[in-house]
Amino acid sequence: MKQVMKIAAAGAFALGAMTTGAFAAATAQPGETAGLAAGAPLPEGLYFVNTFSWGVIDNPGPDTKLLVDIPLIAWSTPWQLFGGNIQVLAATPLIHADGPFGADAYGFYNPFLAGRIAFDLGGGLGVSYLSGIYFNIGDNDVSVRATTWRQDFAVSYTNDGWNLTANLIWGNTFDTDRAVGGKTSNGFNLDLTATKTFGKWEIGAIGFGSTEYDLPDAQKRSNGGPGKVETFAVGPLIGYNFGPVILQAALTTSIYSKNSGDDTRFWSRIVIPLWSPEKPMAPLVTKY
Rank of each mutant, 00 (worst) to 15 (best):
I86S: 04
I73C: 00
F112C: 05
G132A: 08
S53T: 03
P60Q: 05
A146S: 15
L94K: 10
I117F: 07
D139H: 05
G84P: 05
R116K: 13
I133G: 07
D120W: 06
L46V: 15
L121Y: 09
F108A: 12
I133R: 12
N110L: 11
L125I: 15
W54D: 07
V142P: 02
T51E: 12
T148I: 02
T51V: 10
T64R: 00
A146Q: 11
I86D: 02
A90G: 15
G126M: 02
V127N: 05
V144P: 01
N85G: 09
G84M: 12
I73Q: 00
A105G: 08
Q151W: 04
S131F: 08
P111Y: 13
K65E: 13
Y129I: 15
F101C: 02
G124I: 10
R116T: 09
S53E: 09
R116N: 10
N110A: 10
F48D: 01
V144H: 11
S128P: 07
F52D: 06
L66W: 02
K65N: 13
I86F: 15
F101L: 14
R150D: 11
L66F: 01
W149H: 14
T64G: 01
Y47E: 04
T51C: 01
G45I: 00
F135E: 02
I117A: 14
D63C: 08
Y134G: 09
W75D: 05
